[in-house]
Design a binder for these strands. Structure first.
Lengths: 335, 335
DNA sequence: AATAGCATTGTAAGCGTTTGCAATTTGCTA
DNA sequence: TAGCAAATTGCAAACGCTTACAATGCTATT
């Protein structure tokens, strides 16, 4: 049980008989301080159990060594993987992370961003599909660099790290088409969101086009992302005569799979499924779920790395980073 | 795009022609300010786009309205559920959350706590099984209240919120015993950790004792918590002749289940499985996994609520909270 | 109309650091 | 040993806000 009222920089300065400035310098490993005095200061710090007050530091230096992370939901395995990547490199660069859940609510998203700004964070990583004008506006108005992770604004003007969604979805769809399916359903989030309407759906259509299959919008399903949604949409998908589906969320995919199997369908013989996030969920089920492979951890890590550069005023060569994706072929597709 | 160099309280005061104190008062919704001046101040704030600088506020008031959360891994579904509960009630009380991952490494845990202290957080929620003396020491040395969530120190001196692990495990074990098993394996984490050695294992032994079954330590398995561990330990469990298992982690349980099924065992007819965390994992598999039901979100929420009281110097009647648990009977047990 | 007493507002001293600039030392050179 | 540049240090002003305490403005009472 250490003493409660912790020592200040003044105490150690006084103890050693030097000025505040000197102590500050050694604490910051800064500039040139004679070795002998540095040692004395260090000793005093040790003895007094001095710990710099980060708040005071922040006020004086205008740097908080804290970044903000705004995300839909920590509980979502996809985003939490990104968060982990972010956190690890944040720590690597000695930043702390202020975390905010928004549930994709634009109101809460703008509130979160504003709140982080008032907390004087040095930078922000933003995750969330719904980047409407309001949100983009407040983001660009903030006096700190922001980078999007696993997210896109429609104008693609904000720095971001993603995979190439149109290519990825196109590959997935093409894969099932090659396996002989010509009625393949797709389930995404609201088409109004850029990531859906301008990327996933585009990839889907490109694959169809390349296979000379006409787009049938009855095969497009929009749901929110959870297991129950998968269970529910499955029946409707079946009704369309589709024999394969590409989903944007693993829980949905598994919901579909379980529903179909419960209704006598054999997976993958009768019906193929490909999902997008490659979370742990896809591994623990039987059969395991074929998925687009995303470097989730890396998306977070790279985004954070990019943010450090931005915070450091370094020039960024490329602000729209696309990380490589794969197609993890598993049990819900023939091959 | 708002102006970059944001207005300060001084600007507002100057604009309206009042003192800093007055502006501060209206910003803090504080004490008595004449309605007319309040309105003028509010208008000026609006026009100038003034946002209080939380850092300066923190320095002056010695309150940061920020709490620290230290947890093993955001990516872990169990803990992220707790985190969500914490975050929600934190927001409800207008606290922000500084998140730190420790991977259960005591060194990182103490570093995290110290770091949070230097950031002047108003309180800390700590999660992690390994509460060794070092960690407990630095925790109690910190100048801010700390409460454990889903975690226990061996002396149970730190405020905490949990379920009654011994009762819960005892029920689970008893359940399979009642289903006719007399060789039931148990897999936990390191027995040196209080939560395992002093709770889970005790519950297990109590169940055996009540059923007059002798404890056989070859039925005790210690693993870390992931799917691969489950896959690996399954074979060893089988070798002991056990016909049922109670695990402390859902991924392990599913690993065991998948291994056994791949090796011709019928679940639950040939082998019963009960796990402990009742995460989404237990729902999406077929069969679904029987589990102890934990109010994970609530554990986090209640812990955070408790912390607000502590930060507010309110007296706490009960510091060792045990929330009710259930037994969610699903497909990996006969009933 | 004077005054007690409350409501409202202002003053100014912190809060614990950082940091530009000035002052002092030190080490060398000649 | 004087003289000068470089290396160390100290000074003191910020940083943007909170908050005792003091000062002033009111109201109502007599």
């Amino acid at each position: 049980m250490q003493k409660k009222n912790s020592a200040t920089i003044y105490d150690v300065a006084h103890r050693v008989g030097v000025s505040l400035a000197t102590v500050s310098r050694v604490v910051n490993g800064n500039s040139n301080v004679r070795d002998s005095t540095k040692r004395k200061v260090l000793d005093a710090i040790e003895e007094l159990g001095y710990h710099p007050n980060a708040v005071a530091r922040g006020l004086a230096s205008k740097k908080t060594t804290t970044i903000g992370v705004v995300m839909p939901d920590v509980t979502d395995v996809y985003y939490s993987e990104l968060a982990r990547g972010i956190d690890d490199v944040a720590n690597m660069y000695h930043y702390d992370v202020l975390l905010t859940n928004t549930d994709e609510d634009p109101v809460r998203e703008t509130m979160a961003v504003n709140n982080l700004a008032s907390k004087q964070v040095d930078g922000i990583i933003f995750m969330g599909n719904e980047l409407d004008h309001e949100v983009v506006n407040t983001i660009s108005g903030v006096n700190a660099p922001v980078v999007l992770a696993g997210s896109l604004d429609s104008d693609e003007q904000l720095p971001s790290v993603n995979i190439d969604y149109v290519a990825a979805i196109k590959e997935a769809v093409t894969a099932v088409i090659k396996n002989g399916h010509n009625r393949v359903a797709i389930v995404t989030g609201p088409v109004a969101h850029a990531i859906n309407g301008m990327h996933r759906l585009v990839g889907y259509k490109k694959a169809l086009e390349e296979a000379q299959i006409e787009f049938d919008d009855s095969l497009l399903f929009v749901t929110h992302q959870d297991y129950a949604a998968g269970l529910q949409v499955a029946e409707r998908i079946l009704a369309t005569g589709a024999t394969a589906v590409v989903t944007y969320d693993d829980e949905i995919a598994i919901g579909i799979m379980n529903y179909l199997r419960d209704h006598g369908k054999k997976i993958p013989e009768d019906f193929e499924i490909i999902t997008s996030n490659d979370t742990k969920f896809t591994i623990i089920t039987r059969p395991q779920v074929t998925s687009i492979g995303q470097p989730k951890y890396d998306i977070g890590a790279v985004a954070m790395r990019m943010l450090t550069k931005l915070m450091n005023n370094e020039k960024i060569e490329l602000t729209q980073v696309k990380l490589p994706h794969t197609l993890e072929r598993r049990g819900t597709t023939i091959n």
